[in-house]
């Protein structure tokens, strides 16, 4: 029984939250990795793009709520999501036209592109704050739980509660759908194939008559969509705060690099590696230890790291990968 209780505690406090968080990171890292493989720079504006997309979704959600439109048990934000994606992708295309296009034309060094993305980051930062402010916002509505603690106890008779929030299920389901759609697009459609060709060998792709402007435009549209979805899911699961999204940049970059930057499968794997390490190392294992080792209760919380240091986990993993396997777990590309 105690063993089962320990298992439930691990599921409740580590596996479920880390899976949801990992899915959010994976979607964010996919955006970074796509930009990296097609446009060949690390996009520092990605965190703020996520914040902007989520801000738009929140505004539309409020509009829907004011009009009395709801999505039944699901959060209204999911209805607003397509509109948010359209606006964010349009902004991405506009940014590319006004800002990035010139640097592609003059073939600027990647590090200059990174610097340019810092400028874009400032602008996006300001736009998001004009749009929605700096405060913490909770915008999840609809049913809160798929399984709540009381139901679980009545159902199983275990002492340890298990809760499964609907936002966590929505996150994972949406992420699976999005990833499936992305891989289908990249693998099966003509445009997707030309994107892969462009990423593998730009010169050869140009020689085969692939239109670079089209490839770049599609990349920005997909990135805008991924950023909006990732940001909205993160905001539904936790809450929205512009600065938190900027800080997500580190775990997102870490996920992309750990998996192998430029490699979509790697980005997904990296997201889960980072999320499980972060949650696992900052979780207080006292309860689990108490269940597993009878007649002994540890003095402390058995927490390896305080939650304040969760970014240190992604950083450490990033460093370890850079030292031992700079190409990442799934052979990324090094330009």
């Amino acid at each position: 029984m105690d063993f089962l209780n320990a298992l439930v505690a691990i599921t409740n406090y580590v596996i479920i939250p880390a899976t949801a968080y990992g899915a959010q990171l994976a979607l964010g890292a996919l955006g970074v990795t796509l930009i990296y493989s097609i446009l060949r720079f690390s996009n520092f504006a990605h965190g703020d793009t996520m914040a902007f997309g989520t801000g738009v979704v929140i505004l539309i959600t409020w509009g829907f709520q004011a009009m009395g439109i709801s999505f039944g048990p699901l959060p209204t934000a999911l209805l607003a999501l397509p509109f948010g994606i359209i606006i964010t992708s349009a902004l991405m295309l506009g940014t590319d036209k006004v800002v990035y296009q010139y640097y592609r034309k003059v073939k600027a060094a990647p590090v200059v592109m990174v610097m340019v993305s810092v400028g874009v980051m400032f602008i996006m930062n300001a736009l998001t704050r004009f749009l929605i402010g700096v405060d913490q916002i909770n915008f999840a509505d609809g049913a809160r739980f798929v399984i709540n603690a009381r139901e679980w106890r009545e159902m199983t008779g275990l002492a340890e509660p298990l809760t499964l929030r609907s936002t966590q299920v929505i996150t994972v389901v949406t992420a699976i759908l999005v990833v499936w759609a992305l891989f289908w697009f990249l693998g099966k459609t003509r445009t997707g194939k030309s994107m892969r060709a462009f990423s593998d060998n730009e010169d050869l792709a140009l020689l085969s008559g692939i239109d670079p402007d089209r490839v770049v435009a599609v990349t920005w549209i997909i990135t805008g969509a991924l950023a909006t979805i990732a940001g909205t899911l993160y905001g539904l699961d936790k809450s929205f705060k512009a600065f938190t999204y900027f800080q997500l940049l580190l775990p997102i970059f870490a996920s992309a690099i750990v998996g192998g930057i430029g490699n979509p499968v790697g980005a997904i794997a990296g997201g889960f590696v980072i999320s499980f390490s972060e949650v696992g190392l900052t979780y207080a294992w006292k309860k689990v230890v108490t269940y597993l080792i009878p007649n002994w209760e540890p003095d402390g919380l058995v927490q390896l790291l305080s939650t304040d240091y969760k970014y240190a986990v992604s950083f450490t993993i990033l460093i370890l990968v850079l030292i031992f396997k700079p190409t990442g777990l799934f052979k990324g590309k090094i330009v």
Binding site: F41, S42, F44, A109, P110, V111, V114, L249, L250, F253, A254, I257, Y311, S314, F315, L318, I319, L322, P326, I334, V335
Partner: peptide
Amino acid sequence: LRSDYLAIATLGI
């Protein structure tokens, strides 16, 4: 390593 890795590592530190 790649030039942007320093940027990401310093962001982290």
